[in-house]
Computed example of a mutant assay.
Amino acid sequence: MTVKRIEVGPLMTGAVVHGNTVYLSGQTGSGATVTEQAKDCLAKVDRLLAAAGSDKSKLLQTLIYLKDMGDFAEMNSVWKDWIDPANPPARATSQAELAKPEILVEFTVTAALD
């Protein structure tokens, strides 16, 4: 089985396709608020899924990391507006110390191709 890498960088790849599954690296966004960062993250998820030949209707699992669980409702509001309501993925959300102090939210996504 082949492996296709999309947006290869020196330390990680934006997305990896193996078989009928696409795995995205953690996506972070810019902005001062969780809402701004979450919207930016999910736009990146849309772009990477499209580059792989998938979309949010084919999400299998999403892992969401928040710097502060006090931001859960704010993040969830963005999430609710973004997901395909007919095809929500399995999901987990947890609090984590993220790579940089200014990062408030990070999304890691796995999706099907067909």
Rank of each mutant, 00 (worst) to 15 (best):
2 T>A: 08
2 T>Y: 08
3 V>L: 06
7 E>C: 11
7 E>M: 10
7 E>Q: 08
8 V>N: 11
9 G>F: 10
11 L>K: 15
11 L>A: 14
11 L>Y: 13
12 M>D: 11
13 T>V: 15
14 G>M: 08
14 G>L: 14
15 A>H: 01
16 V>Y: 14
16 V>F: 08
17 V>E: 01
17 V>S: 07
18 H>K: 14
19 G>R: 13
20 N>D: 12
22 V>E: 01
22 V>S: 00
23 Y>D: 14
26 G>L: 13
26 G>K: 09
27 Q>G: 00
27 Q>M: 15
28 T>G: 08
28 T>W: 00
28 T>F: 07
29 G>F: 01
30 S>I: 15
33 T>A: 07
34 V>K: 01
34 V>Q: 02
37 Q>I: 05
37 Q>C: 10
39 K>W: 11
40 D>Y: 02
41 C>G: 07
41 C>Y: 10
42 L>V: 03
44 K>I: 03
44 K>E: 05
48 L>Q: 06
49 L>V: 06
50 A>H: 07
54 S>L: 02
55 D>P: 03
55 D>R: 00
56 K>R: 11
58 K>S: 01
59 L>N: 02
60 L>K: 07
61 Q>D: 04
62 T>P: 00
63 L>S: 07
63 L>W: 09
65 Y>P: 00
66 L>E: 02
66 L>T: 02
66 L>C: 05
67 K>W: 10
67 K>F: 05
67 K>E: 09
68 D>N: 09
68 D>A: 03
68 D>G: 05
69 M>F: 02
69 M>W: 01
72 F>T: 10
73 A>S: 08
74 E>M: 08
76 N>F: 08
76 N>P: 12
76 N>Q: 15
77 S>M: 11
77 S>H: 12
78 V>I: 11
78 V>C: 10
79 W>Y: 15
81 D>T: 14
86 A>C: 15
93 T>H: 15
94 S>K: 14
95 Q>C: 06
97 E>F: 09
97 E>W: 07
98 L>M: 01
99 A>N: 01
108 T>H: 06
109 V>G: 00
110 T>Q: 04
110 T>S: 04
111 A>L: 04
112 A>Q: 10
113 L>C: 04
114 D>T: 13
